[in-house]
């Protein structure tokens, strides 16, 4: 009989498949189908993480999904996750109540290059729920505001009623050291802001393109249009970072479900440089 594959016996691989138990400490409803959960480990301390990383959240008896971390270190010994009810697992997680227990594996993946962007202008471009994975990076940049030049947050959403983190956006907008622009796809005349797609906001805040680093997160089509608009404005493709989403299962680059060309989104992403993925981003076979 052939000996068992030694790689499968490596402790980190084995451990990485076993979820830790986390208690739901608080649930905040963001939108009709979206909640933010605060999760604390039942024992010990939560692991450190970088903005842009994700955890695998496990609703026992239902299944497991990848969810980006949407909070920062101010959440203490808790992970903050913002989840939209789009299926069986996310629905079960969204219906969690304080005191419930979820399984959690992580954090996993490559996050936003927040430290590498120091000294640059930083443009965050978010679409819909894409603001959640960007939020830890935004908070970190704002916390260390002096280390960056100009900072802008561009946010696009479906309509004014579907605006994620509305209060936070309003408080960011009151700051004098950042630019915040919000646009919606559809609106009635009571809305006094922008109407149109989020790439259309880029000329409104365009900085020195040679000095700009862009962090983009949202539906993939929105990211493609945004990356195109940024490169058309003169931002080099290696300075544009996208948070990709694929069918993450193992989260450690073994199962291949999230393969994206030569990469695995779970291990080599989710945050990926545009110049490395631009050619395959529009391929429908990938």
């Amino acid at each position: 009989m052939a000996p068992p594959d030694a790689r499968l016996e490596e402790p980190h691989t084995t451990d990485a498949f076993v979820p830790d138990l986390y208690r739901v400490e608080a649930v905040r409803r963001e939108l009709s189908d979206t909640v933010t959960l605060e999760l604390a480990p039942i024992s010990g301390t939560r692991p450190a993480y970088a903005p842009g990383q994700f955890n695998m959240l496990y609703a026992f008896g239902v299944g497991e999904i990848a969810i980006s971390i949407s909070g920062n270190h101010e959440s203490g010994n808790r992970f903050i996750h913002t989840v939209r009810d789009v299926g069986a697992v996310s629905g079960a997680i969204c219906r969690s109540a304080p005191g419930d227990v979820l399984g959690l594996r992580g954090p996993f993946g490559v996050g936003w290059p927040v430290a590498a962007a120091e000294g640059s202008d930083v443009m965050f471009v978010a679409g819909g729920l894409g603001l959640a994975p960007l939020r830890p990076a935004i908070l970190e940049v704002l916390e260390n505001r002096a280390r960056y030049d100009r900072v802008a947050i561009l946010f696009g959403t479906r309509n004014p009623a579907d605006m994620l983190f509305r209060h936070q956006l309003e408080s960011w907008r009151q700051r004098l050291d950042i630019e915040v622009e919000v646009t919606v796809d559809h609106a009635d005349p009571d809305w006094h802001g922008h109407v149109g797609v989020v790439p259309g906001l880029i000329p409104h805040v365009m900085f020195d393109p040679a000095e700009t680093v862009a962090f983009v997160c949202g539906p993939e089509v929105m990211m493609r249009f945004t990356a195109t608009a940024l490169t058309a404005a003169g931002v080099a493709s290696e300075r544009i970072h996208l948070s990709m989403e694929r069918n993450m299962k193992c989260a450690i680059g073994i199962c291949g479900h999230c393969q994206f060309g030569p990469d695995f989104v779970c291990k080599d992403g989710p945050v990926m440089r545009y110049d490395r993925i631009a050619e395959i981003l529009a391929l429908r076979e990938i």
């Binding site: 189908d33 939209r84 789009v86 679409g127 819909g128 729920l129 696009g156 959403t157 479906r158 579907d162 796809d185 559809h186 149109g196 797609v197 790439p199 259309g200 949202g218 539906p219 089509v221 929105m222 249009f225």
Partner: peptide, 15 residues
């Protein structure tokens, strides 16, 4: 025209 096409996709809707 491209922006309108993107709006028509309703990319922020549930998939």
């Amino acid at each position: 025209l491209n922006a309108t096409r993107l709006q028509l996709l309703d990319v922020y809707g549930k998939r």
